[in-house]
């Protein structure tokens, strides 16, 4: 088992290095384009271009350029934006990370718990009115675009009903760091958490229900019945345990995707200065150093999340060891 984990970690490092090379090549070695002009952003002066060329060693061979770039990113961490002169890329990303992680972690807790409840309830009450209703609501949840739902939530809690007792506690859009105020942090995030969780509750609830219903037809469930276990023990200890295997792999992918910048839409609409929002700004300004950092950061998160899932897999499914 330990050997499997070590091998998996080795693979992870290999994938990460490959991605950094690939990203580097896309930005620096695309034929027919001057990387200096792209790095410098729109309407750069010849002086800026010269500075960029010098800073990234663009007159030197590609491998040297790659090493220089990685040095700027990870060692000296002094990669700067040329669109907003002087703004350092790495600290900006590092500052945005806690925001995104706060958002995604909180939403994940909500969606996992709620989806477990929805899926187990629906499977337990399968083919009844309760099951149909839960699945209908789940479908609606999956179908609502997150940016639209966030906008509606803003409209209700920030504008229309902000002055009623129900939503008067809702702070203005924005992020309060956990270190400043725990309550403030919670208040600033609870609505984005819920909005982000809705889609995943629907998705995970539906997947879990169908997995559970399928598991209930397995031979080992018949054995569990023949052992004299109660229906609750059968569902929770046997059917749910086996259904979790699929769910965990789904969760790893979704979590990695969101933490890696996939929460861009909700971050922009809810005014949270996370990595997604940073990427959004960089894309609008064509700020290449920022875009590159964001892409690398996202890739790191997705790869790391996948590795964690693979390791968890070995823990929850003995057949995968």
């Amino acid at each position: 088992m330990i050997l499997v984990m070590v091998r998996r970690l080795g693979e992870m490092v290999f994938v990460l290095v490959s991605i950094s090379v690939l990203v580097f090549l896309i930005f620096f070695a695309t034929p027919g384009a001057d990387p200096a002009a792209r790095l410098a952003g729109r309407g750069a002066t010849p002086a800026t271009l010269a500075a960029v060329r010098h800073s990234f060693g663009l007159d030197k061979p590609l491998p040297v350029q790659y090493v220089l770039m990685m040095k700027h990113l990870f060692v000296t961490q002094d990669l700067t934006s040329f669109v907003n002169p002087g703004e350092k890329v790495v600290p900006a990303v590092l500052q945005a990370v806690p925001v995104t992680l706060s958002l995604v972690f909180g939403a994940a807790i909500i969606w996992v718990i709620a989806a477990l409840v929805v899926g187990v309830l629906a499977a337990w009450a399968r083919d009844t009115v309760l099951d149909r209703l839960l699945m209908l609501f789940s479908l609606i949840g999956v179908s609502m675009p997150v940016f639209w739902l966030a906008e509606v939530a803003n409209l209700i809690t920030q504008a229309r009903y902000h002055d009623t007792w129900l939503f008067s506690w809702v702070p203005a859009l924005g992020y309060v760091p956990l270190s400043v105020s725990v309550v403030g942090w919670f208040k600033s995030l609870v609505i984005p958490w819920t909005v982000l969780a809705v889609t995943y509750i629907g998705l995970y609830g539906r997947v879990l229900r169908s997995n559970l219903v399928e598991a209930m037809n397995e031979d080992y469930i018949r054995t569990a019945r023949a052992k004299g276990l109660s229906e609750r023990q059968i569902i929770l200890r046997h059917a749910l345990r086996m259904s979790l295997i699929t769910l965990v792999s789904m969760f790893g992918l979704d979590f990695g995707l969101l933490a890696g910048g996939g929460a861009l839409l909700i971050e922009v609409v809810s005014g949270l200065p996370g990595v997604g929002e940073l990427t959004y700004q960089a894309l609008q300004n064509l700020d290449l150093p920022f875009i590159m950092a964001a892409v690398l950061y996202g890739a790191v998160f997705i790869v790391v999340a996948n590795t964690v899932v693979d390791m968890l897999y070995a823990v929850i499914d003995p057949r995968a060891r």
């Binding site: 397995e218 031979d219 080992y220 018949r222 054995t223 569990a224 046997h238 345990r241 086996m242 929850i316 499914d317 003995p318 057949r319």
Partner: peptide, 10 residues
């Protein structure tokens, strides 16, 4: 079928 009659996770 004893191959499928036991829960694989335990």
């Amino acid at each position: 079928d004893p191959m499928t009659a036991l829960t694989p996770a335990y």
